[in-house]
Design a protein around this nucleic acid. Sequence first.
DNA 1: TTTCTGTTATATCGGCTTGATATATCGAAA
DNA 2: TTTCGATATATCAAGCCGATATAACAGAAA
Lengths: 220, 220
Amino acid sequence: MAAGTNSLELVVLGLLKEQDMHGYELKKRMTESLGLIMHVSWGSLYPALARLEAKGAVKAVEAKPAIPNIPMTGSLGGERAVFRTSSDGLRGARNKKVYGITDIGSALFYQMLNDEREIDEKGFAVRLAFASHMDPEKRLKMLKDRRDLILEKVRSSRRSADKRRFAFEPYVELVLEHFRSTNTSDLAWIEELIRKEASSMQRPNTEFLVSQDIQDNINS
Amino acid sequence: MAAGTNSLELVVLGLLKEQDMHGYELKKRMTESLGLIMHVSWGSLYPALARLEAKGAVKAVEAKPAIPNIPMTGSLGGERAVFRTSSDGLRGARNKKVYGITDIGSALFYQMLNDEREIDEKGFAVRLAFASHMDPEKRLKMLKDRRDLILEKVRSSRRSADKRRFAFEPYVELVLEHFRSTNTSDLAWIEELIRKEASSMQRPNTEFLVSQDIQDNINS
DNA sequence: TTTCTGTTATATCGGCTTGATATATCGAAA
DNA sequence: TTTCGATATATCAAGCCGATATAACAGAAA
């Protein structure tokens, strides 16, 4: 089931590996930093967190009802009023729920990252972004797989363009041509990455390799 | 409801405007010709057709149980055996259901095409592909809106990149840089299109404008 | 002081897409 | 004759998106 590895869960785990965060913070980080790469909606983020929590991959570290720095206005009732935990337990409007990654989550992160199933554009971008946590062979393989996939897409598009004798409407041709050129330049970029990876694997200790925690890697 | 205009329905209507087709043929056309632009799965295509049919935008033109050219083997039972319409009516395994577009569908096509709501990458590509059916002002507006959107995305990404004093992991920076450059080149492409559109609007009769059926346009 | 507004924060819903799978027909090759 | 691959339609569980609801809180305006 679970068609291919879920990029969103991968990103969430990747970010939580850096530091504990609550949902809102996660989304902020994603849109501010990775906004060009991916895009998250509330309707997928919170269910994703819930899923990860159910799997034991993350757990609520801290659930503070946002006690502000109490200004010294004398004692106005002791513990600062009711903790109105809104009907069902921990959550509540402004009651932050800060998540942390568990060992299970860390293992899941590496397992998802090294999953060799075919990936789409977004999946590729996300994995590459976290590629410093992959081991070099897998990383190289991922790049080559992606290259082959794009190559085949472009070729097949050109093939079927050559096959038909007539041209489509001019705007269709326009768009197709642009997509072919975008893919071609993606291809060149990936080729360059492959070249660098390959050469830094021959002589290690290059700063292009940024792997320190790779041995934690759990290959399911 | 119906968050923004549905690109898939737009494409289906656009293709059916050219000629009647059944689902399988539609998917073939889409993946062969527009494969670089979009991607359709069975699980969305058939429901989309059903939706369009329910709206009266398309209708089954012909539902032939695939009678092959009868080879003259004398009379072997008359009308060529049972039409096993598989349990519930018209459909059945190889019983093609050929769809045609209706007047309502044609109106819907123009309405969706000219919908000015904010669109994502895919939505933009699809609309641009059918842009010969838009009127020139809307087309130009769409291009400018898209340009502004990308411009803002890139700027905001650069802004938040400049703001933080430290760099992310090298692979993240790598990916971000690539996306910025992709977006920048998209931007240049769109600027060029805008330039051409604008100049062909000043002096009409340029072959860059391919509008003949624009007056059918129904602006809801 | 109170009110109003904008940001922080979590959650849910309907509608749609996806990838997988099931079913069945047909033509042609083996 | 059987087998195989292409044609053809359909459905399902999971997941995502955009919209919307709810509420706490900070600070400015009134």
